[in-house]
């Protein structure tokens, strides 16, 4: 893997990573990080049969609510090019580092990228990549991101770039948290509104049995950083991709329901 070995890093864990999760080194003004692309086959498998929801021609249906969680008008207008789907993997709650930023955006096709911090020093770069994507698109779609992903992104960025604390917020034009949409649309018919439940009942998709549970993620990442263990890291990467693709599909289903 010629494009992998980072300059100055001590090699072995990074090499091992490059073998199991081929990707490329991404250099940013805030340092470098590791970039992974979603497997096109996986995207086709999950989103292949979706209608052309994301075509800019989607007609302007009347919105179901004014300003509430179901007011998806702006989202509809900004699709496909102006919207960024995001999902984070972190070492815990507020105050803990973010180590994986997964984004999906729509061009001529669905594009998925993951930015991985291979150790604590690469967190600024993955955050930089997020802000770069957001600046370009402006509208954010997440699942439970209003209480988790967004504050996390803000706080971790302020952590590394304290003097930007007052200006970050302005890169965000609108944020759709599909948790609230899902609760309104499907909540009463489902046992709960967790992403996996929605994935199963709304998207009709059953995830592989060895999907890593959320609570095991911080430790698994720590083991990767301290001991170079990549096995669980692969599972985390897969988990994050699945979460994002489900997010995209849920967004489609919600727009369908509301049009």
């Amino acid at each position: 893997m010629p494009h992998v070995g980072p300059a100055g890093a001590s090699g072995s864990p990074y090499d091992q990573l490059a073998r199991v999760l081929p990707g490329r080194l991404r250099r940013t003004p805030w340092g470098c990080c590791y970039e992974l692309a979603f497997c096109p086959r996986l995207i086709r498998q999950r989103l292949g049969q979706l209608p052309e929801l994301f075509s800019p021609a989607a007609e302007q249906a009347e919105s179901a609510g004014q300003g509430g969680p179901l007011d998806l008008e702006l989202l509809r207008q900004r699709l496909p090019g102006g919207v960024l789907f995001v999902d984070l993997e972190t070492c815990g709650f507020l105050g803990s580092p973010v180590f994986l930023v997964g984004v999906v955006y729509l061009g001529r096709e669905v594009v998925g990228r993951q930015y991985l911090a291979r150790d604590w020093s690469e967190e600024p770069a993955i955050l930089y990549q997020f802000w770069k994507h957001l600046r370009r698109r402006g509208v954010l779609v997440s699942f439970n991101g209003k209480s988790f992903d967004w504050p996390m992104l803000l706080q971790r960025t302020i952590y590394h770039q304290p003097q930007r604390h007052a200006t970050l917020q302005r890169h965000l034009q609108e944020h759709y948290d599909l948790l609230y949409v899902a609760r309104r649309l499907w909540g009463r018919h489902l046992p709960n509104c967790r992403l996996k439940t929605l994935e199963r009942y709304i998207c009709g998709y059953q995830r592989a049995a060895d999907d890593i549970p959320g609570w095991a993620i911080p430790d698994a990442y720590r083991r990767f950083v301290t001991q170079g263990e990549t096995e669980d890291l692969e599972r985390i990467v897969y988990h994050n991709q699945m979460d994002l693709l489900t997010l995209v599909e849920l967004c489609c289903r919600a727009l369908e329901r509301l049009s």
Partner: peptide, 18 residues
């Protein structure tokens, strides 16, 4: 002790949360 990790001349905290 494994509480800090040194990378490029900086020390990063990697101990338990909180």
């Amino acid at each position: 002790q494994g509480l800090l990790l040194r990378r490029r001349g900086r020390f990063y905290y990697q101990g338990p949360a909180g």
